[in-house]
Computed example of a mutant assay.
Amino acid sequence: MQRTAVEQVLRDIDAAFARLQAGAYGMCQGCGKPIPVERLEILPHARCCVPCEHRAD
């Protein structure tokens, strides 16, 4: 279980680097708005803002 969780985080980090290279880092993949800096400070590989993350659950 823990190995799977670590592998997922590594995939998320790789995806964040890809978004950074593409110029899309920090933009919510749900609504397209900027992800608040405070969220990115806590979770640098965040794909979505908090409201969109909750909608996906």
Rank of each mutant, 00 (worst) to 15 (best):
M1A: 01
M1F: 00
Q2I: 10
R3H: 02
R3I: 00
R3Y: 02
R3V: 01
T4W: 02
T4H: 02
T4M: 05
A5H: 07
E7D: 12
Q8S: 11
V9Y: 06
L10V: 12
R11H: 08
D12N: 11
D14Y: 13
D14Q: 14
A15G: 10
A15K: 02
A15F: 05
A16Y: 03
F17I: 13
F17H: 13
A18G: 04
R19W: 03
R19G: 05
L20H: 10
L20I: 11
Q21D: 13
A24M: 09
A24W: 12
G26K: 11
M27L: 14
C28N: 03
C28K: 12
Q29R: 15
G30R: 13
G30F: 10
G30L: 11
C31I: 07
K33S: 07
P36M: 00
V37Y: 01
V37D: 02
V37S: 03
V37W: 00
E38P: 15
E38M: 11
R39G: 08
L40V: 12
L40W: 08
E41L: 04
E41Y: 04
E41Q: 05
I42V: 14
I42S: 15
L43A: 06
L43P: 06
P44Y: 01
H45V: 08
C48Q: 01
C49T: 08
C49D: 05
V50L: 11
V50T: 10
V50S: 09
C52P: 07
E53M: 13
H54E: 09
H54C: 07
R55V: 04
R55D: 00
R55Q: 04
R55S: 00
A56R: 13
D57E: 15
